[in-house]
Design a protein around this nucleic acid. Structure first.
Lengths: 230, 230
DNA sequence: TCATTTATGCGTATTTAGAACACAAAGATA
DNA sequence: TATCTTTGTGTTCTAAATACGCATAAATGA
């Protein structure tokens, strides 16, 4: 066994949040130490000896941003030898989503050091973090069509128009409102609540709810969530 | 920066090969050292300081099995603290495919230590390798339907029936021969050669070829390979 | 050698899912 | 109370998936 290996293991997270139409954002932190001091980067850090990778991500997110995550999955592992200018550091990157009510950044971190960035206003990032972000963005776009992950970017109860706008924003295409609604409802994984949202002008909207339990049930009997639009 | 981290980084590969109908196999090696000495395991090993992860996989595959890989992609990173009973070892696992003509195992490795195992005759594996294998198997099944990776399990020129059988074997379902052929050809990424295979009884079959270049061209103009069957 | 078996190659009707589209309803605004 | 805005629903048209039938080209063997 080769004992002279010198590679550090870190985790990094690309966390997406969605506020409203055309408002998809990513959580970034400003680096306080070299290298890339003062540059923006993905939240993350070295894994501790006794914690799992997921635990490491959640700990770092909590420490650095104070955020609680609603959806988390592994994205990809970046391991080229020179990606960190100091030592060799491998990054197991994660893909995360937060609901609007978890959007807030912890008060006790210096707010200037943590910030949501609109996806088309990303500053130059440290290390290869732009590459990681790009891959996460691709994953988000792809996964939205065949997994019900969009609900982890919305409040528990939402009007249908929010869901439509979310899809249009992320997929960057126009979707027919009526066909979208028809297909979404046809899966039987969205429930109507008896609540009504009456804000702004226009007809008030019924609030809907994603029934995760029902979805899990259906997946057992080889049901596949699949919502694609030209 | 925490400097006391003690985690080793290894790579492991799940390599699939396909011979004929109902003959999907995985490449395994018999471990020569503790822990799990004598048990079967996925080929792999520790990453060297100056090589990329992909280079590490290819090196290990070459050293341990003598095989040349036709398709390779990262699968998942397994990093729970106790997956290796000695030290903490993180495994960046890869998913690989080999064409039948690369099926042969290197002569200078002890043949008893490397072997193809039929997917439903897998022995008890070392570490968490069964879990890795399961994930790779799922990936293979899923990816077959929306990426043209099946061709990396067939010879460069193949009769249509081989392709059909490959799909039926991996997806574990019956597929209508005529509809399958129609849809596959409709993509325009498979070319007819002027060669004919006349082995066994029955009408001799034309040989076909996957046109990778054409496929790459099409993907630029948002073409999506997609072949699903109930 | 000629009927039988095996596998390939091509075509067509039927069913299902997707795309395109128009108008009524409920409240806000002025 | 007329107008604006957004929600809510139904129908037609079109394309794709499915389900088949039958002819063809060899190997097999009675």
């Amino acid at each position: 066994m080769k004992v002279n290996q010198d590679i550090k293991v870190s985790v990094d997270a690309v966390v997406f949040g969605y506020e409203s139409k055309n408002n998809l954002s990513v959580l970034l932190i400003k680096r306080g130490i070299e290298p890339f001091k003062g540059k923006w980067a993905l939240p993350g850090g070295l894994v501790m000896n006794d914690e799992s990778l997921e635990e490491a991500v959640e700990r770092e997110l909590s420490e650095e941003t104070g955020i609680t995550i609603d959806y988390l999955e592994q994205l990809y592992t970046f391991g080229t030898p020179k990606r960190d200018p100091r030592n060799r550091v491998l990054s197991v990157s994660y893909f995360g989503l937060v609901k609007p009510n978890h959007f807030n950044i912890k008060a006790d971190t210096d707010a200037a050091d943590v910030q949501w960035f609109h996806l088309n206003e990303i500053p130059k990032l440290a290390f290869d973090h732009q590459q990681i972000l790009d891959m996460a963005h691709q994953r988000l776009k792809a996964k939205l069509s065949y997994e019900p992950i969009g609900f982890d970017l919305l409040s528990d109860e939402f009007p249908f128009s929010d869901l439509e706008n979310l899809y249009m924003t992320i997929l960057e295409k126009e979707i027919d409102r009526r066909n979208f609604r028809k297909k979404m409802l046809s899966f039987g994984i969205i429930e109507e609540t008896n609540k009504i949202e009456k804000i702004g002008s226009g007809r008030p909207a019924k609030l809907f709810k994603f029934n995760k339990k029902k979805f899990k049930q259906l997946t057992v009997n080889d049901f596949h969530f699949d919502i694609k639009f030209v």
